[in-house]
Amino acid sequence: MSLKLISELLCIPRAGLGFLGRQGTRAVAASAIAGLMLPAFSEILRPWIPHAIFALVVLAFLRVEPAEVARRFKRPLLIAVVVAWIMAAVPFAAGLAAHAFGLEAWSPGLMLALFIVTAAPPVMSAPAFAFLMGLDGALSLAVMVSCVLVVPLSAPFVAGFLLQDALPLEPLILARNLAGLLVGAMAAAWAIRKLAGPARLEAARVEIDGFNVVLLFIFMIAAMDGVVARIWSDPLLVIAITSLSFAVAGLQIVLAYLVFARLGRADAFTIALATGNRNMGLIVAALGGVVPDVTWLYFALGQFPIYMLPMILKPVARRMATGAPAL
């Protein structure tokens, strides 16, 4: 086999990743639907969810230059306020509402789902989504990284408030699992950046976005374990939980945008998207993937807003991106 042929063969997967990366939000939304079409693989891939989450974290740290993130940290008080909103204000407000309506007694599984969807940091793909939507990925990554660093400390306190004794894992073990996953991912990203160099990473941005799409697709297939069977056995429950997940994500987005609107439309919308799209998989992975059926159903169906809202909201994001940045 000639070197030319070998080179051409090696270019095929890179070209495929580049195509997926250029398709952006459309490819991500399509992967959500495609994940439902492969239920036979869901059970096989479910144990790999923690590994997919780990890889997505690594890609998130690779996607934006550290200098750009450092520029955003020149306003540390503002980043701290955003993190406090996402990681403390939102989950505690949700907890007060849930306790007021007696959700913990009516459905402990949904109460655990509420913990997962509000205690989690923004999705690791938030910077990639921001780039794909024409928004500031550096701001998104700065917020996401800050929330990720905080979550091992904040999640146990949120769990204590929301779940009290119903947490399926000791708070310290939850914190340890989250910290271990994040430190490992940061170390892996640092090693890759050192080996590849900034120039190669810059040249491979589109391919990295494409690989992100592939990982999201694999993650979606794994998350759909048991969901297709539920669609046939209890379609009304599936519709209700899907609608609820869109409503929760939408409410978080709208409230965050209103709270931070004074920062400028583009930055406020970037923060709002990070607030509404939470990395539930990170918390589920830290819990060992062992959650009640209703909680798993919400976790699985809650991926649809994450995968589809970037495409749905992209026209809005383009208009927002014309606003002058506040930072």
Rank of each mutant, 00 (worst) to 15 (best):
M87P: 04
A80N: 06
F161M: 06
L167F: 10
L59W: 03
E68I: 01
F54K: 02
A185R: 06
G18H: 04
W85P: 04
L244N: 10
Y298N: 09
M320V: 03
L178Y: 02
L174R: 07
F157V: 15
I253C: 06
I241S: 03
W190A: 15
Y257I: 04
L56Q: 02
I221E: 03
G210S: 08
L251S: 15
E8L: 15
V150M: 15
A175T: 10
Q23D: 05
L114F: 03
V83R: 01
L273A: 06
G137W: 00
V145H: 02
P50G: 13
L216E: 02
G323V: 03
R230I: 08
Y257F: 15
P76N: 09
L112W: 01
P66R: 10
M87E: 11
I306S: 05
M124E: 06
I53M: 15
A272T: 09
I208D: 01
I192C: 05
V64N: 08
V69H: 04
P121L: 01
M224D: 02
R278H: 08
A100V: 09
K4A: 15
L9K: 11
S154R: 03
K74G: 15
F157T: 10
G281V: 02
L236K: 11
R46C: 06
R63S: 15
V150S: 12
V228W: 06
S7H: 10
G160N: 06
L135N: 00
P235H: 13
L110K: 04
V57Q: 13
M224L: 10
P168N: 08
L201R: 01
A84N: 10
Y257L: 08
F246S: 08
L45S: 04
I53E: 07
E8H: 11
L162E: 00
R63A: 14
L141K: 03
A88C: 13
L103K: 05
V238W: 04
V58A: 04
A89Y: 07
F299Y: 14
K194S: 13
Y257S: 06
F92N: 05
D293G: 10
P66L: 11
A300V: 10
I239M: 14
L139W: 04
G95I: 02
A179W: 09
A84V: 12
R278N: 08
A128G: 05
V58P: 00
A159L: 06
G288V: 07
Q252T: 07
M111V: 12
E104G: 13
R230D: 12
R319L: 11
P13N: 01
I173S: 12
L114H: 02
P171V: 11
A52I: 10
E170M: 13
L297Y: 03
W106Q: 14
P47F: 10
I86E: 00
L178C: 06
V294C: 00
A93R: 07
D293S: 14
A187P: 04
F269I: 07
L297M: 14
A29K: 07
